[in-house]
Computed example of a mutant assay.
Amino acid sequence: MFTLYSSRIDRTVLMKSRTYSGLLPGIAAISCISAVTVGYAPTAFAAPNAPSDPLCTITYPTPDDFSVQASSDAFATSVNSGSMELKLHTDSRSQTGYDQKFAVTWANITTGRNGQADTSAFVKGSENTLSIPGTVTKTGRIALVLSVTNHGTGDNYTYGDCSVEYTVP
């Protein structure tokens, strides 16, 4: 059984919403996901950002050489009213290359809507971009769990994730 993620930030969200019962399922879902995937790490918050400002940076070892640290910067851009595009810029720090999956689990704190999406690509070197276009969330505050899964040779896997909040106008 999961325990509900409880931090000062989450309680503030609930207090400000004034609609605790209507938001509880969406918040509980994201809170449980956040608690399981990030090990009870605090959540970062972001308003609509300039496309050049990353929401977060995810670091992880490369799957075929655990001593090499790769990194990915995650970005969100509002494209239309009620939707956003997510991008992941990866510096794999590897000339060997590996398969990478970029995934998002989201919940609109304002409306209670939620969803998920993902994309995959082979990454090698420092210039790699994975994109999840047209994520229709509707307008409001969106809790995001962004994750990266890397697969090298054989059974070599590495993972990383972050939790952030983004406002879709």
Rank of each mutant, 00 (worst) to 15 (best):
Thr105Pro: 01
Lys101His: 14
Ala47Tyr: 08
Leu86Ser: 03
Thr43Lys: 12
Pro51Asn: 08
Asp91Met: 00
Met84Cys: 12
Tyr98Gly: 01
Thr62Asn: 01
Tyr98Asn: 00
Asn49Ser: 12
Asp64Pro: 06
Gly112Met: 10
Phe102Asn: 07
Lys101Ser: 11
Thr57Arg: 15
Pro48Ser: 09
Ala46Asp: 06
Asp73His: 08
Thr77His: 02
Pro61Ser: 02
Asp53Met: 11
Pro63Leu: 00
Thr111Met: 08
Ala76Thr: 01
Asp65Arg: 06
Ala46Thr: 03
Arg93Gly: 04
Ala74Arg: 11
Thr62Arg: 00
Thr77Tyr: 06
Asn49Asp: 06
Thr59Lys: 05
Gly112Thr: 06
Thr96Ile: 12
Leu55Ala: 15
Asp64Gln: 09
Gly97Thr: 02
Lys101Pro: 08
Asn114Asp: 13
Arg113Phe: 10
Tyr60Asn: 02
Thr57Ser: 14
Pro48Ile: 01
Thr77Phe: 01
Val79Trp: 00
Gly112Tyr: 05
Asn114Thr: 10
Val68Glu: 01
Ser71Leu: 11
Asp73Glu: 11
Ala44Met: 08
Ile109Gly: 05
Ser81Arg: 13
Ser83Glu: 12
Gly82Ser: 11
Gly115His: 08
Pro63Gly: 02
Asp53Ile: 08
Asp53Asn: 14
Arg113Pro: 10
Ala70His: 02
Ser81Cys: 03
Ser71Asp: 12
Trp106Leu: 05
Thr57Gln: 15
Tyr60Val: 11
Pro51Val: 15
Val104Met: 14
Trp106Thr: 02
Gln69Glu: 12
Asp99Glu: 10
Ala41Asp: 05
Leu88Trp: 03
Phe66Asp: 13
Ser52Asp: 08
Gln95Val: 13
Ala47Asn: 15
Tyr60Leu: 09
Asp73Asn: 14
Leu86Asp: 01
Ala74Lys: 08
Pro61Lys: 00
Leu55Pro: 07
Asn114Gln: 13
Ala107Asn: 14
Pro42Met: 05
Lys87Asn: 04
Thr105Lys: 03
Val68Ile: 15
Thr43Cys: 14
Ser52Gln: 11
Lys87Tyr: 05
Ile58Cys: 05
Ser81Tyr: 10
Thr43Tyr: 08
Val68Asn: 04
Tyr60Thr: 07
Pro63Gln: 00
Val68Met: 06
Pro61Trp: 00
His89Leu: 10
Pro51Cys: 09
Asp53Ala: 15
Gly112Val: 02
Ala44Arg: 10
Phe102Pro: 09
Gly115Ala: 04
Asn80Thr: 14
Asp65Asn: 10
Asn114Met: 13
Asn108Arg: 09
Tyr98Ile: 00
Arg93Cys: 08
Arg113Leu: 12
Asp64Val: 01
Ala107Trp: 05
Gly115Val: 00
Asn108Gln: 07
Gln95Ile: 07
Pro54Leu: 13
Arg113Asp: 15
Cys56His: 12
Thr59Met: 06
Ser52Ala: 14
Asn108Phe: 03
Gly97Met: 01
Asn80Asp: 15
Cys56Trp: 11
Lys101Gln: 15
Ser92Phe: 01
Thr90Gly: 04
Cys56Ser: 13
Thr110Met: 05
Ala70Asn: 04
Thr111Asn: 14
Asp91Gly: 01
Ile109His: 09
Ile58Ala: 02
Gly115Asn: 10
Leu55His: 15
Ser83Lys: 11
Ala41Met: 03
Thr110Val: 05
Leu55Val: 05
Asp73Lys: 13
Glu85Arg: 14
Tyr98Lys: 00
Pro48Met: 12
Gly115Thr: 00
Thr105His: 06
Thr59Ile: 03
Ala103Lys: 04
Asp99Pro: 03
Asp53His: 10
